[in-house]
């Protein structure tokens, strides 16, 4: 190709470029449905709607596990002692500093609601185990306290708190 044709693209070049561009646009647009289909389908999304949980059967010191969007949610009815303990820890002692107040709802401080998935690699920690009277992950030994905060082990972050609110004193809505 000589310099002059580069400087003055011919109609032929334009035709080829246009055809190529339209083909490329079509090809990319065609890809979209093939990728999008991997996302959760409409029934899965609808099934992830909020759920209500009745707390009245859960006695002090007990906890229950419910499932929301396929994830286990721990709901613990903490004892006075546990609440005091987690509220008295200085934040500077925590790898992922957060107050217990910010992780629970005012007026319902005895209730802890966390997603029971270890922030290390996704195993499910066991409640009421470990050195901190909280959760212990059997996979690689991460330990969480009774506020679900990471205290020791390879996990980097606290157990996340799912979106929830109290509908009444004994009922919460998760989601």
């Amino acid at each position: 190709m000589t310099a002059s044709t580069v400087d003055h693209p011919t109609r032929r070049d334009f035709l080829f470029v246009a055809t190529g561009a339209v083909a490329a646009v079509g090809g990319v647009a065609t890809l979209w449905p093939f990728i999008s289909q991997m996302n959760p389908d409409a029934s899965t999304i609808a099934a992830g709607a909020p759920i209500e949980v009745d707390l009245s059967p859960v006695a002090e010191g007990q906890d229950i596990k419910v499932f929301w969007r396929g994830k286990p949610i721990y709901i613990s009815h903490r004892t006075k002692k546990q609440v005091e303990e987690v509220r008295s820890v200085p934040l500077s002692n925590l790898p992922d500093p957060a107050t217990d107040q910010s992780r629970t709802k005012d007026g319902h401080e005895q209730w802890l609601v966390v997603i029971g998935i270890c922030t290390h690699l996704g195993c499910i920690p066991i409640a009421h185990e470990g050195n901190y009277d909280g959760f212990f992950c059997p996979c690689h030994g991460s330990q969480y306290d009774a506020s679900g905060r990471i205290r020791q082990g390879p996990a980097p972050l606290n157990l996340p708190v799912p979106p929830y609110q109290f509908v009444s004193d004994t009922k919460i809505q998760i989601g």
Binding site: P33, F34, S36, Q37, N39, D41, A42, S43, T44
Partner: peptide, 10 residues
Amino acid sequence: VRDVNYGWLL
């Protein structure tokens, strides 16, 4: 056909 994204198309 009903729920999967673009399922009807595929």
